[in-house]
Design a protein around this nucleic acid. Structure first.
Lengths: 190, 190
DNA sequence: GACGTAGTAGACAGACTTGTCTACATAACA
DNA sequence: TGTTATGTAGACAAGTCTGTCTACTACGTC
């Protein structure tokens, strides 16, 4: 994924600076672990300015997830293209992400674990995100009766691979297991 | 999984009461979201007593994960047995857990998301936990050259299913996808 | 009878939380 | 010229967090 936070220069509006800093901190250190004061300090903005744009931390969390969704999906589609576009592109595309310095798992899965109980909208945004991810995966597969089912299974395996790469802190086992599933799911079975 | 927290009566030692309460709160509401004061209040213990047994919150987190590991593994092995013992037992066993009132995903995956960055030992405990889970899964499979590899792939799919059941808040899609993977992984391929 | 262990209640320190408020500056635009 | 939008600095409220401390109680065992 894009590590390069698009240069949080003075050029950008206060709102953009806040969102980009939150994007970075929330993903890197966790949402609960990141205080509003830190976001404010690092985006070089006044407190009033912050609260004018984001009336509460929950609003910022929401905007963060929406923004993350946009950027991640854009990256995902692009990476799959760059790696050939078929279902075989899945593993090398994910490898790109998993080996990124800043990789810390799926922002949505992490948020569900952190906030799922107290902030139900996180569940809903996550479902939307994963549905879109599944759609993109389905488009990699040849049309067939069981395309949708295969895409769901693959998406589940991708989630498993993300988790595994996260706690292993190395992508190898995750990618191997994903490829095993992918192959058995597609080569065989009519 | 066992919802019935083994009756936190006055009979138990202060240490046990603290650990059982923490077990419940940490899993249900998250670790960061649960303050030490709350654990102390709900276990009906004095602050000094708490700190005598658990010198810091991090120690409690550690003990919580160890305890969770013990209980979850015991439940898993038992549930697989009860459902017939083969690889076919996997899905009904997990269904048991996923439909439990108190199901909130995997305590280890959740902890990694919450604390992985700041508390590296969480990663290590999680790896150990998942390794043991994978071993148990391997024992469900017939001996063959690719047994270990299949177990790794299945374990990855199980993680994916846990996540999916968690954010879906219903186990159906997760179990279906898991079964698709399981079947294609085992029926076919020599 | 003295000592160690395990327990109680509750005040306190110091840091950090989210969010509000006052008072002021600058630029665009009607 | 006056209004609106956007920005600044920073004090403050009210609460929560982890962890320490004093002072006292009860039980079992050597």
């Amino acid at each position: 994924m894009q590590t390069i936070t698009p240069s949080i220069s003075q050029m950008r509006s206060a709102r953009d600076r806040i969102l980009l800093i939150a994007y970075d901190l929330f993903y890197r250190e966790g949402i609960r672990a990141t205080g509003i004061d830190r976001v404010i300090a690092e985006s070089g903005v006044a407190k009033v300015t912050f609260y004018r744009h984001f009336p509460s931390k929950n609003v910022l969390i929401h905007e963060f997830l929406e923004y993350r969704h946009q950027r991640w999906m854009a990256w995902f589609v692009d990476a799959l293209q760059r790696h050939g576009g078929g279902v075989k592109a899945l593993s090398p595309a994910l490898a790109e992400w998993f080996t990124d310095q800043g990789f810390r798992g799926c922002a949505f899965i992490n948020s569900v674990g952190e906030l799922g109980t107290s902030l139900p909208e996180v569940l809903e945004i996550t479902r939307r995100h994963k549905n879109e991810m599944t759609d993109v995966i389905a488009n990699l597969l040849p049309t067939s009766r069981h395309r949708k089912q295969d895409a769901q299974a693959l998406a589940l395996a991708v989630d498993g691979a993300i988790i595994r790469a996260q706690y292993d802190q190395t992508p190898d086992a995750a990618l191997t297991a994903l490829e095993v599933i992918q192959k058995s799911l597609l080569n065989i079975k009519k």
